[in-house]
Design a protein around this nucleic acid. Sequence first.
DNA 1: TAGGCCATCTGGTCCT
DNA 2: AGGACCAGATGGCCTA
Length: 297
Amino acid sequence: MSHLRKLATARWLLQESPPDPGEVSPSDPANAARFASAEPCAWLSPAFPASCPHFPHPYCSPAGSIAPRCHQQVSQGAVASIIPKLPPQAAVQASELCGVKGQAKATSKQLAEPPKHRRLAANARERKRMHGLNHAFDELRSVIPAFDNDKKLSKYETLQMAQIYIAELTELLQNVSQQNLGAGSSLSDCPNVKLCPTKCCSLQTPVAACSNIPDGPPKVLSDSTGDTGSAAQRLKLLSPCKSTRNESKVTSSRSDGESSPHSHSSDWEEAQAESMACQRSEHLSDLSRAPMARKAS
DNA sequence: TAGGCCATCTGGTCCT
DNA sequence: AGGACCAGATGGCCTA
């Protein structure tokens, strides 16, 4: 868990540009306590439930109907394409659910509601829950590296990429820590190295090495190759190889986990890095096989 | 047209 | 008892 906390801070520190208003700074004393908490839920932005300016209530539109995808990156067209799927009763029920919070408790009549109404209410809750899950996936997509593809990452790919991204950031931290121990000079003298400015977390190690570290999370990556020496560069190469990578893709990545998804690319020349990727891919492969085993049972 | 991905519904289970 | 969570089923949309 401490790794995740470090990464939350690392990601913050890697950004040179001022954060978005909605972004959370771990150096903020108010947020420091959150990031210091051992409970991951505490790390979530308090603004999360109302993070979408269009729908103040989480996943409920102002009109009370379900907002299928309450996220800035989702076009209105996408929303419109989903809303009609909702059965009319469900929309009505959802509006009731969305507006009922904080209001009077259920009446005896509501308590004795027929099973059909309960089923509809459960459907609405489930819908809302899944929307929350999708929102979380969207948030995750927004912070992990991705190629400039039109197509967004699938849920499965998003989880894979997040896992790889976290592993690479962790490795980056470890590498720089070792450099810090080995080198006699203070890394804090290097303009490209930033130390966690607060005691909000245990991260007192540099979060960026003095070589080829991108200014921020590589939101959009090109498929250009270059110096593969840094961990950050390797991270680029670990990014999905859909349309921009081709030829020697080892196996295709399937969301049902039937094959071993390999994330490394054909132009990966560093044998060591390739070895690492293979190990990671094997690990991912193991993970991806797990659901199949459960299915088979 | 087949396959992938997704949203939704549904019933079961667990938890508070 | 009611809500959260989960997984299976189903149907729609999109793409190769």
